[in-house]
Computed example of a mutant assay.
Amino acid sequence: MITENERAVPPADPSTDLAAPPAPRVRWAAVVTFLLVAYGGGWLIALPLWRSGGLANPLFLPLGLAVMLTPTLAALVATLVVVRPARPARFLGLAPVRPWRRTAGYALLGFVGVQVLGLLAIGLAWVLGVTPVHLAPGTWPSLVSMQLLGLLVTVAALGEEIGWRGFLLPALRPLGTGRALLLSGLVWGPWHAPLVLLGYNYGTTNPSALIMMTVTTILMGVLFGWLRLRSASVYPSAFAHGALNASGGTLLAVFVPGAAGVAPSVLGWVGWLVVALVVVALVAARSFRWARPGAATS
């Protein structure tokens, strides 16, 4: 006989807990739904930019921010319509996780760590003779402003992270951690096409820019994914993403004023070397494992 108390407790749902065993297979219907909404929504929103003005279109900023929200829309559609987990917020890494200091610590690590990677890329570029380094006027105000901008941009970056690390990474978990990290980063890159092919990020409309962006997203996706795995939360990767968006151009303007191209940044080949070394170190330390999130409040 089933008592009233037993009837009130829902069965365990592994899809809501990164510490639970992964589902036996990838829910490809959910993954395809996510990609169709994210990619289709991005192109649909960016269409006015392609029809008139490109990056010079006065609507570029609001439309660009709207594009960043399409992965969240896609994640919500795929999660609520196809996957339908018992705890959607927890599945997407949005539920508060205890202890709070764990999430806060990884958020701080992501926010500061990405900026350190940018500085290391500039330093390596100088050592390799790729570019000279000298401080531009107004260094400290620029660096302080970069922190404030990074915190502000984190709000928009969360719109991407709920999709790529909140939904897609756990959805691909049955493939194995390594494959899930690499594949989620791989499909994250071409999603940037509506803006990158207009000249955003790399300053060229050549399709090679999209290839470079994809290399960047694979490498940075591993690091952002590591933050997601270790914290069982999507917020640390959002802070890291916000810092990336805010610091890339600012660090070059401060330390390499007048630099041609993005080679000395994490968007370029010197930065790729720095990020790859960090990834290798994390792999060697066997640090890529799914965290036990403890008690979530929702």
Results as ranks from 00 to 15, higher is better:
L128E: 08
V114M: 07
W126T: 10
H192R: 13
L181G: 13
R173G: 05
L169Q: 04
L151P: 00
V116M: 08
S184Q: 07
Y200Q: 15
V153A: 06
V112K: 14
A171W: 03
P141F: 00
R179H: 09
L108G: 09
P190F: 06
V153H: 07
L135I: 15
T131G: 02
Y202R: 03
L109N: 14
L109Q: 10
Q115P: 00
L158Y: 05
V187S: 07
A121V: 03
L148F: 10
L182A: 08
T204D: 11
S142L: 05
L172V: 01
P174W: 04
H134E: 14
P141M: 04
R165G: 04
L124E: 10
P132A: 12
W164H: 06
F167N: 04
G178R: 14
P190I: 15
V153R: 01
V187Q: 08
V187G: 09
L148K: 12
L186H: 13
P132Y: 07
T139Y: 07
P141E: 01
L149D: 12
M146Y: 00
L128M: 14
H192Y: 02
L182Y: 14
L135K: 07
V187I: 02
V133Y: 04
A180G: 13
Y200G: 05
L182F: 15
L149E: 14
A171G: 15
V114W: 01
L172T: 08
G189Q: 04
T154P: 00
I122K: 01
L128S: 09
V144H: 02
V130T: 00
L172G: 03
F167C: 14
V144E: 15
L183V: 05
L128W: 10
G118N: 02
L197I: 10
R179K: 15
L135C: 05
S145V: 03
E160F: 12
S184Y: 02
L183Q: 12
T131C: 15
V127N: 11
L109K: 13
F167R: 11
A125Q: 02
L183S: 06
Q115D: 11
T139W: 03
L183M: 12
L149G: 06
G203E: 14
W188T: 05
L119S: 09
F167Q: 04
H134P: 07
P174C: 02
H134Q: 14
G176I: 04
W126V: 13
V130G: 01
T154G: 00
H192L: 08
G110K: 00
G166W: 03
A136K: 04
G189P: 12
Q115M: 11
A136G: 12
M146P: 07
G189L: 13
L158I: 08
A193R: 07
P174D: 09
L152C: 12
S145L: 12
L109A: 14
L169F: 08
W188N: 06
G113V: 00
A121L: 01
L148S: 11
P170V: 08
T154C: 06
Q115S: 13
L186A: 15
V112M: 07
L175W: 10
G163F: 10
L197W: 06
G178H: 11
L149K: 11
L183A: 13
G123K: 02
M146I: 08
V130D: 06
Q147R: 03
G203A: 07
A157W: 02
L151W: 00
S145N: 09
W140A: 15
S145D: 14
G110T: 01
A156L: 06
V144I: 12
V153M: 07
L124I: 01
T154Y: 07
L195N: 05
G150W: 11
V114H: 03
L124N: 00
